[in-house]
Simulated scan of single mutants.
Amino acid sequence: MATSTTATPATSQGRRTGADLAYRLLRTVFTVAPIAFGLDKFAELLTEWDRYLAPWVNDLVPGSAHDAMLGVGVIEIVAGVVVAIAPRLGGPLVAAWLAGIILNLVTMGEYYDVALRDFGLLAGALALALLAWDARRRRD
């Protein structure tokens, strides 16, 4: 879809296609989830996020693991907002961010289940970007 927040264009018969509905679903999920998880880095209602930071990453960033996770939270919130405003850019941004999370988790030698889940989310973020580019081409 275009970078605006207008509704997805309907087919010539006035009905939404499966691609239109999938686009809407993915755009909603990849807007809400990063913002929610980003906010939770500050609230820590879901988990203690610091334990998911690989030691080598913690050594690269200034401050403590908690400070790093607060920065991660800000980045996730920004990524969700970018998806909402410009999904053609936000989809690849979220996919790249998820790739970084996967690398972090795999190099820890733990949380392979979470890394695998995030790989599925990465594929979904790329699908969102492809649908957004396709919708843009159909509109132009």
Rank of each mutant, 00 (worst) to 15 (best):
M1N: 13
M1F: 12
S4E: 15
T6Q: 15
P9M: 05
T11Y: 07
R15I: 00
R16W: 12
R16G: 03
T17E: 11
T17I: 07
G18F: 14
G18V: 11
D20M: 12
Y23A: 11
R24G: 12
R24P: 00
L25S: 09
L25N: 01
R27C: 10
V29Y: 15
F30G: 05
T31K: 01
V32N: 01
A33K: 00
A36G: 00
F37S: 00
L39D: 02
L39S: 03
D40H: 09
K41H: 14
K41R: 06
F42Y: 07
F42W: 12
A43L: 13
E44I: 02
L45G: 02
L46C: 02
W49H: 06
D50R: 11
D50V: 06
R51I: 06
R51D: 05
Y52C: 02
Y52A: 04
Y52I: 08
A54R: 06
A54Y: 06
W56T: 13
V57E: 14
V57L: 15
N58C: 11
N58Q: 14
D59T: 14
V61C: 13
V61A: 14
P62R: 10
G63E: 09
G63K: 01
G63D: 08
G63R: 04
S64W: 15
A65Y: 15
A65I: 11
D67L: 15
D67G: 14
M69Q: 12
M69G: 04
M69R: 04
G71R: 10
G71D: 09
G71H: 10
V72L: 11
G73Q: 07
G73P: 06
G73I: 12
V74F: 13
I75S: 07
I75K: 11
E76H: 10
E76A: 10
I77E: 04
V78K: 05
V78Y: 02
A79E: 10
A79N: 06
V81Q: 00
V81A: 05
A84V: 03
R88F: 13
L89W: 07
G91T: 09
P92M: 15
P92K: 14
A96R: 03
A96C: 09
L98E: 09
A99Y: 02
G100M: 12
I101N: 09
I102N: 00
L103H: 02
N104K: 00
L105S: 01
L105W: 02
V106M: 01
V106Q: 00
V106T: 00
V106L: 09
M108I: 01
G109W: 01
E110A: 03
E110K: 04
Y111N: 03
Y111G: 03
V114F: 11
V114I: 13
V114R: 05
A115M: 07
L116F: 15
F119T: 05
G124E: 10
A125S: 06
A127E: 06
L128A: 03
A129G: 10
A129I: 05
L130Y: 11
L130N: 05
L131N: 07
A132S: 12
A132V: 06
W133Q: 00
W133G: 04
A135G: 10
A135N: 04
R137K: 10
R139P: 06
D140K: 13
